[in-house]
Design a binder for these strands. Sequence first.
DNA 1: TTGTTATATGAACTTCTTTTCATATGATTT
DNA 2: AAATCATATGAAAAGAAGTTCATATAACAA
Lengths: 99, 99
Amino acid sequence: MKRSSYNNFFMNFATESKFGIIMALKDGPLSVNEIVNRVGDEQSAVSHSLRKMSGCHILNVRKDGKQRIYSLNEDTVLPMLKIVEKHVKKCCLGRDYDG
Amino acid sequence: MKRSSYNNFFMNFATESKFGIIMALKDGPLSVNEIVNRVGDEQSAVSHSLRKMSGCHILNVRKDGKQRIYSLNEDTVLPMLKIVEKHVKKCCLGRDYDG
DNA sequence: TTGTTATATGAACTTCTTTTCATATGATTT
DNA sequence: AAATCATATGAAAAGAAGTTCATATAACAA
């Protein structure tokens, strides 16, 4: 299972932990702690995810005192989510994927 | 690492093997053997991938004699690819993701 | 400068995915 | 009906990613 840049990119949406972070940030920027509280994972795990996600420029980071504020790269993420929502609505009503 | 429907969906783009299948199908429908020849993986591995991908309705299948012809769900896949291309062009010129 | 809060990092561990291998099924031809 | 071609399937092996734990760094406060 080798990954190219493209694959890494998609990987950031392909796990519940990372996808959860995206969802948490949909309503606006948050500090790491705030994210941790919303998603319910360990600080360390969240931090690891954030690193990868911002590495792929799916998230933006900004320093603010001792905090780091993460936000969505909306230009990329929002259209992405729209496509999937549409896809699921159209193709996967009710039932689950990958039976 | 739990996955929801959404996560499974993205997983179909997140590995080289599956992404390779998508690329192979960009120019039109292909039988399994044709896909196998283009991507260079084992028939069995390809078959496993195809199963998941069509399970998520990212690919369509059609029987034709003893062959099965797979094709892209273009409504979903093409816009998806466009977003990523744009993203990479804008955010990731030259360098690689996830350093 | 010591202590505390916020976040990051590295390595071991765990878990999920993919790959492989052997085999099964299904359709077609002879 | 037997042989062949095309594809699918299941389980074990291999590989990759996520999680955890302990600890480091960095900023700020006292």
